[in-house]
Write a protein that binds this DNA or RNA. Structure first.
Length: 327
DNA sequence: AAGGAGCTCAACCGCACCGTA
DNA sequence: GTACGGTGCGGTTGAGCTCCT
């Protein structure tokens, strides 16, 4: 279905809001609320589209917005939440009272991302682009989840912790997304990681048929964001032995090959259930609760065995060696 | 002091989802 | 079942600001 754009009227004003417009909008909403943004715009006497009014209110005029720089505690919370939720800014914002999704997104892109890259560069001397999980491994996960900027010299100390979080995040992302990556995208990406001969066949015959059953029934695309180009790792637990062997035999990726769990197995169901639990926590709880639940999941007897199977290879591959084989 | 480069962040765009007629 | 409007969300843009040479 093709949707018409919401604001087609060329006469509607765009661009920065004036103090007078702010006052009109604030007054109207304080008196009447905002059930219908189109009506708000009209009845408040604003020559703006409803969408613009909603954005101005939620990101700027709302009385409970906390302005000013982010505290160190907020920064740590954002980093931790981003590891679990990915670029789900509105859900991250739900854990930070007074902060908007837009504000957090900007803060991440301007401050945190650059800080991570700078730290990585200082440690490794490398200056080329790197994907985020590797960046985190090289900068703060080698240390302590709750002190990201301290003691960065202990680089390899907690790689398994990173791997756990990364894998969990991939599962969550798969379950949250509904857009299937294009075949071309998939093939190119696999090719870039060493899958040259037979990459297309592998994708069409093995991966696509596996999307749509078991854990991946929502369709999977954790890979649109270039930060998360770890396809084999993300899928290995979801593939049967035959598919996994096919991937292993065609790939130079060192982390592929030791773990194999059928998508319909009880272990995968357990992981699915655990991930749903985490999602539920994520939508309504403070950051501390989210991370407490994450710890519980990773320590869980049943789900834990799944992670242990898959984590074995992470724990035996130093992050920088892994990095150099992909980039 | 000037001006170019880099950075910030408010605002926009386009897509997806959901409820309703 | 389908079309459509409203809303929410993530990604992107660009004006204005700051810093650097």
């Amino acid at each position: 279905m093709v949707r018409s754009p919401c604001c087609t009227d060329a006469n509607l004003k765009k661009g920065p809001w004036t103090p007078e417009e702010d006052e009109k909008l604030r007054d109207y909403i304080n008196r009447n609320g905002h059930e219908n943004w189109k009506q708000v715009s009209k009845l408040a006497g604003l020559n703006r589209c409803g969408k613009s009014c909603r954005l101005r209110w939620t990101n700027y005029l709302r009385p409970d917005i906390k302005r000013g720089p982010f505290s160190e505690e907020e920064e740590r919370d954002i980093i931790k939440l981003h590891l679990v939720l990915g670029n789900k800014w509105s859900r991250i914002a739900a854990h930070l009272p007074g902060r908007t999704d837009n504000e957090i997104k900007n803060f991440w892109n301007t401050h945190i991302r650059r800080k991570l890259h700078q730290t990585y560069k200082t440690r490794t001397g490398l200056n080329h682009p790197i994907n985020l999980p590797q960046l985190l491994a090289a900068t703060h996960f080698g240390v302590n989840l709750f002190s990201p900027w301290n003691n960065i010299l202990t680089l390899h100390a907690d790689v398994s912790q990173l791997a756990k979080l990364q894998l969990l995040q991939n599962v969550i992302q798969m379950m949250n997304t509904t857009t299937l990556p294009s075949l071309e995208y998939f093939t190119t990406l696999l090719g870039s990681q060493g899958l040259t001969n037979g990459a297309t066949n592998f994708v069409t015959e093995k991966i696509y048929p596996n999307i749509g059953i078991g854990t991946l029934n929502a369709s999977a695309n954790p890979f649109q964001n270039n930060d998360f180009q770890v396809i084999p790792d993300s899928f290995q637990g979801m593939l049967d032995h035959e598919s996994l062997n096919s991937l292993t035999s065609n790939s130079c990726h060192p982390n592929v090959g030791s773990a194999s769990v059928h998508p319909e197995s009880s272990v995968v169901k357990q992981v699915e259930s655990n991930s749903n639990d985490l999602l539920n926590y994520s939508t309504s709880s403070p950051a501390s609760t989210v991370f407490e639940s994450l710890d519980n999941i990773l320590d869980d007897e049943n789900g834990g065995s799944y992670w242990k199977d898959i984590l074995y290879q992470y724990e035996h591959v130093p992050p920088l060696a892994w990095h150099s084989s992909i980039v």
